[in-house]
């Protein structure tokens, strides 16, 4: 496996909580430019896997390689600076700030220094970057609205926008359509498809229709282990997966 084709590689990634093996020897390689889905029943270890990737948890053993560099066990802010961004299953935004500020502060994190004497509104580069992201996530015109007064669907988009604003090389989306209506789901799938055209995405999702329409590759987790990997067609045809997850 060459590093340039696979921006993210995990090698025997293992996470134990006491006696419980939440993840056991996960080998995974995400190909550049693809959207890679991780599916599995509740408690399969999907969120734990994300938490290990993004530094919220320090894996018990195994390694996480980003662009060939070992990022295992680095703190979240360092991993973010290396280029891994994530959105959360439960909306995780800055509720008391405006939409624009939510995105602006994330864009600003890529500036080399954060000055303490410049007024933030005079930093045109950051501001223009933020306005661009807001257009992308379909919240144009809502720049000055408090994030807490957005609808659930809009907050989910903002959630993705904050992650996107850090200009990541790998974007991890944790159930981006959680709690969304059918039409909101369609919009967010469209958004992810657009982002995915130029970005490597790792997505955890329960909605099979969403997974099948977005992902080029799928990894199935069950009881903390990789049950199967392959294209959507292969996964749908796999009898083990059908038994464990699709319940057909």
């Amino acid at each position: 496996m060459s590093d340039s084709t696979y921006p993210l590689i995990t090698k025997k990634l293992t996470m134990h909580f006491g006696g419980l093996a939440a993840l056991e020897d996960i080998d995974l390689a995400v190909e550049r430019g693809t959207t890679h889905a991780i599916i599995g029943p509740n408690g399969a270890g999907k969120s734990t896997f994300f938490n290990c990737l993004t530094g919220l948890l320090r894996p018990t053993s195994g390694r996480v390689l980003l662009e060939g560099q070992d990022i295992t066990g680095l703190p979240p802010e360092r991993i973010s600076q290396r280029g891994v961004a994530r959105s959360y299953q439960i909306t995780n935004i800055f509720p008391g700030s405006t939409c624009l500020e939510n995105i602006r502060v994330a864009v600003q994190s890529r500036q080399p220094t954060s000055s303490f004497l410049q007024h933030h509104r005079t930093d045109a580069t950051t501001l223009e970057g933020a306005v661009g992201i807001i257009e992308t996530i379909g919240l144009g015109g809502k720049e000055d609205v408090m994030a807490s007064s957005l609808s659930h669907g809009e907050q989910r988009n903002l959630e993705i926008g904050i992650a996107l604003a850090t200009a990541p090389t790998l974007l991890c989306l944790d159930e981006p359509t959680a709690g969304m209506s059918a039409s909101e789901t369609r919009d967010v799938v469209e958004l992810i498809r657009r982002i995915g055209a130029s970005l490597t995405i790792l997505i955890v999702e329960h909605d099979m229709q969403v997974v099948m329409s977005l992902a080029q590759r799928i990894t199935v987790l069950d009881y903390g282990q990789v049950l199967a990997q392959g294209t959507p067609d292969e996964i749908q045809a796999n009898p083990q997966v059908q038994e464990a997850y699709l319940k057909i």
Binding site: P76, Q81, A85, F94, V105, A163
Partner: peptide, 16 residues
């Protein structure tokens, strides 16, 4: 950044 920390410290960390 400090106001972001006040609003949501883990998220501020997560954006770097």
């Amino acid at each position: 950044v400090l106001q972001a920390i006040r609003e949501n410290e883990p998220r501020t960390r997560a954006i770097g």
